[in-house]
Structure formats: C-alpha cells, structure tokens
C-alpha cells in the first residue's frame, strides 16, 4: 500500500500493517537487546529491524509493539521516530531514493538532478511515484561528496549524476 500524498496521521492506524508479526521478529530482536545494559537503548536498532521488515515504515501498531517490547513509553518512541529523518511514520514507496542536496553536491548540479526527477515523475521531492515504486526525498550530506552529485536508492549509491543519468538510473532498475 503506497500513496503519493501524506496520510492524515489520524488515519494511519487504519492502513494495514504488513510484514511479519512481532513475535516472528523477536528472534532477531532479542540478541540486539542483549548488547545493551538497558533495554531502552536498543530502540534505534529495533526500529530499524521493524521498519525494514514491515514495508519500510513504522505503522502505529509497530510503534506500540516496540514500546511494549522495550518497556518504554509510546510517546518516547514517537519522539525518537520523528527526530530521525530515516525513520518513516508514513507509508513509503518500495524503494526510498535520497538525493543529496548539500553544498558539495549543490556545487556540482544537485538542484538540476532534483528538478529533472520532479519533472520526470511529476511529483515534488518528498513524494512517492504514482506507481508506488519510489519515494524520492532530498537528504542532507550523504558523505559521498567525492561522487557528487549523488543519490542513494536504499543501500545502492549512485554518483556523478547528471539530470539524464539520474532519471535513467531510476527507470532502468529491474522492476
């Protein structure tokens, strides 16, 4: 389930929470928790596992389950999720594309790359393509300044982009 627009947060709980049940994730989570002297410390890595396993975003149910699992207040989990840009509290496309917008990339044409992607997919940065395939965001410095301008597609990285090569890269990936 993807969407091109932000979902009213009050409606999020009505969306399906896809992916494995929390019990099925425990096997992966318990050893992570064991790395820390306090359960609460495992919050970031646990959120990562849950987000990856469950369609790339954190459904309200996931938030509740994580809070319960780590015995931390739900408001704390919400506070953490909304603090870090890579945790998503909204549904995202199948792949998340991050185009770096910071200085080293801007100096070498990042703005033109973003313009091209917006024009090609007919969405604003931050939006999701109509086919639900990509959520395309801007990001602050990705630490790939030696290949500026650059973007990441989940774990892939692509550098020395031109407006054309950026579009071609996204369109050219296997569906």
């Amino acid at each position: 389930m993807t969407t091109t627009k932000r979902v009213d947060p009050a409606e999020l709980a009505k969306l399906p929470c896809t992916g494995p049940s929390f019990d099925d994730l425990r096997g992966k989570l318990d050893p992570i928790v064991a790395r820390y002297p306090q359960r609460a410390a495992a919050l970031l890595p646990v959120l990562w596992v849950v987000q990856r396993a469950r369609a790339g975003w954190l459904h309200p149910k996931s938030i509740r389950e994580v809070a319960e699992y780590l015995a931390v207040p739900q408001a704390h989990v919400e506070g953490v999720i909304t603090f870090y840009t890579m945790f998503k509290d909204q549904p995202v496309g199948r792949d998340v594309v991050v185009v770096c917008k910071t200085l080293s990339c801007r100096l070498r044409g990042a703005q033109e790359v973003m313009d091209a992607l917006e024009d090609h997919f007919g969405i604003d940065m931050g939006g999701t393509t109509k086919d639900g395939r990509y959520t395309i965001e801007t990001g602050e410095c990705l630490g790939l300044c030696d290949m500026a301008p650059c973007m990441t597609i989940d774990e892939e990285r692509h550098g020395n982009l031109t407006p054309e090569s950026a579009v071609k890269t996204l369109e050219g990936r296997p569906r």
Partner: peptide, 9 residues
C-alpha cells in the same frame, strides 16, 4: 557493537 544512527547530524 555497531550502533546505527538514523539520520540526525
């Protein structure tokens, strides 16, 4: 142990 951040300078 490796602890991953999540996007915060």
């Amino acid at each position: 142990w490796i602890h991953s951040g999540a996007g915060a300078y």
